[in-house]
């Protein structure tokens, strides 16, 4: 409750600022020019697309829960600090889904959190993570998405309360918190850990849950992957090098846990992590699981 109040205050402030300096909200192209969103020289790799689609967990949000739900047709409602946010249909249907989009539109959504018409997406869509993915990997996911059966059902939309329903406010949020592109990845890391860093920060979107957030919902980079600061939704830390979680785990403990959900003491993960393992991480190749373990053990940001 307090959190929501703080968020509301923060966003009101943000909205006020929008008038002064946050033209960003209304004229996104001024702040997010279409840098590097072209498709020149792209060679499709559908297998890689199918793999990253699974590791990236697109279906765990975009498919409604329960048997018989149509894959990627949306309909799930996410409870977030902003309020309830509905997840859209991303099948190739031209009306209900994203079948009418171009590859550039898709890159803009995944990298910049912008819709084709320039609307800002809520960060409940983990584009803050996906922005770290390479252009070719994103385009491979796009290639894969086009092979999914189109579903003509429009996903229901939930209206948020003021001020969260004003998407322009998100422009300022993004100016503050969206770190676009591959810039910060993989400094001073050996090859295995670099691949792991890429998977953890990009498709794996681990930070979305494992990095605590400030009052405005931005990541506390100084506590990268350190788990929650208490609160009603606890999440453990997964940064052993800095003494934050996974105490006494070795590399094989980590990669085994990611692929099977089994912890070194014979326990198994539960709650949201069980879903993440079942739907996303159990599909990891052994090499990629080992790379993620190597990165988590070194735990540089």
């Amino acid at each position: 409750m307090l959190m929501r109040f703080l968020m509301a205050c923060g966003l009101c402030l943000a909205l006020a600022l929008v008038g002064v300096l946050g033209v960003a909200g209304f004229i996104p192209s001024l702040f997010w020019p279409d840098r590097g969103l072209g498709t020149d020289g792209y060679v499709p790799n559908p297998e890689n697309g199918a793999y990253l689609f699974r590791v990236g967990g697109c279906a765990s949000c975009h498919t409604a829960p329960g048997k018989g739900a149509k894959p990627l047709a949306g309909g799930r409602v996410l409870k977030t600090v902003f309020g309830n946010i509905s997840v859209p249909n991303i099948t190739p249907d031209r009306e209900a889904g994203i079948g009418a989009w171009s590859a550039e539109d898709f890159l803009r959504a995944m990298r910049l959190g912008l819709s084709p018409s320039g609307r800002h997406y809520y960060p409940a869509f983990p584009y803050n993570s996906y922005t770290n993915m390479s252009r070719d990997d994103l385009l491979d996911i796009w290639t894969h998405l086009k092979t999914i059966a189109p579903v003509a059902d429009k996903a229901p939309t939930v209206t948020l309360d003021f001020p969260f329903n004003i998407r322009a406010g998100l422009g300022l949020w993004k100016l503050l918190f969206l770190v676009e592109g591959e810039g910060k990845l993989a400094r001073n890391q050996d090859e295995g850990a670099a691949r792991g860093a890429y998977l953890v920060k990009g498709p794996g979107h681990c930070a979305e849950c494992h990095t605590p957030r400030n009052a405005l919902g931005g990541w506390k980079y100084s506590r990268w992957l350190s788990g929650s600061d208490g609160g009603p939704n606890p999440v453990p830390g997964i940064a052993p090098a800095r003494g934050r979680g996974l105490k006494g785990w070795n590399a094989s403990d980590i990669s085994f846990a990611l692929k099977t959900g089994m912890l070194p003491d014979g326990d198994s993960v539960g709650s949201e992590m069980a879903t993440v393992v079942d739907k996303n991480l159990s599909k990891l190749t052994d090499e990629d699981a080992a790379a993620m373990a190597a990165y988590l053990l070194s735990a540089r940001r």
Partner: peptide, 11 residues
């Protein structure tokens, strides 16, 4: 079962 019926651990 842990997915549906057990609260996550902290830290």
């Amino acid at each position: 079962c842990h997915e549906q019926f057990r609260k996550p651990k902290d830290k």
